[in-house]
């Protein structure tokens, strides 16, 4: 037992840093970290890996210590456990469960009360051909797209209480998450899909919805809607977050 304690006392810091280093290198390879963080974090994770290399190397050649106290052992255990969570979360994306928790309703990206200067609502767009527009571009200046027929890719949910209350029926919602730094701060963007309640849709399915974009004012809220919609299932995009 004292031998084991001496072993852990000597190597627990080395082990924790080495395992975290390998985890970060693994996430960096092939851009796996982009399932959790924005691509720019590449420039933050590499220095972190270098610091972990320094930490790991600084323990090599260290004389044996007297053992490990319970606090250090508990701390080391706590530092290793999240790696299981990271491994489990790989490949997962935020779905309707997270959308329903985060969605506060309507146009919720701080775009003001009306069209941006010089962009009258829907001027002359209605006769233009359909174009695919990322959802975040629509929310940057929604009035620019009003009246225009758009194709938008996102996930579908049919189970949002707020939308049901606003629309008076269970309308499907096409949503995406826009990341600022990481998935924890991702903001939900959503377009109501003007389909009848009876339409059978798979929850969290990815779809390309084509429809005429409109902004309706319902119960004092501005609701972005895709009218006369046509749905086509698509594969999950390589980068699910905007």
């Amino acid at each position: 037992m004292p031998g084991i304690l001496r072993f852990f006392g000597r190597w627990h810091k080395f082990t924790v840093c080495l395992v975290w280093l390998l985890a970060i290198l693994g996430l960096l390879s092939g851009g796996r970290f982009e399932m959790f963080l924005i691509p720019e974090f590449f420039h933050v994770l590499w220095p972190a890996a270098v610091i972990l290399i320094l930490f790991t190397c600084s323990r090599i050649g260290e004389p044996p210590s007297g053992g490990i106290v319970l606090r250090e052992a508990a701390g080391a255990l706590l530092l290793l456990l999240p790696l299981y969570g990271i491994w489990r979360a790989e490949g997962m994306v935020l779905e309707s469960d997270a959308f329903n928790t985060r969605f506060i309703g309507g146009l919720s990206t701080g775009e003001g009360d009306g069209p941006a200067a010089g962009t009258p609502p829907g001027t002359g767009f209605s006769n233009q051909p359909v174009s695919e527009v990322p959802m975040d571009k629509i929310f940057e200046n929604p009035y620019l797209y009003a009246g225009r027929r758009l194709a938008v890719v996102g996930m579908l949910t049919t189970d949002n209480r707020q939308v049901a209350e606003l629309m008076g029926r269970n309308c499907p919602v096409l949503f995406r998450f826009a990341m600022t730094c990481c998935a924890a701060d991702a903001i939900p963007l959503a377009l109501v899909v003007d389909l009848p309640e009876s339409a059978s849709l798979e929850e969290n399915a990815w779809a390309r919805v084509t429809g005429k974009f409109a902004i309706r004012r319902i119960q004092g809220q501005k609701i972005p809607i895709l009218e006369e919609p046509e749905l086509r299932p698509v594969k999950r995009p390589e980068r699910p977050y905007l």
Binding site: L37, P47, A48, I51, I86, L94, E95, S96, D97
Partner: peptide
């Protein structure tokens, strides 16, 4: 469950966002 999947993503995201800055 969906909430467990959400939990794992958020837990991993918060940690991976914070750990590099903490190391620095």
């Amino acid at each position: 469950s969906a909430s467990t999947r959400t939990f794992f993503i958020i837990f991993a995201s918060i940690l991976l966002e914070a750990i590099p800055f903490m190391l620095l």
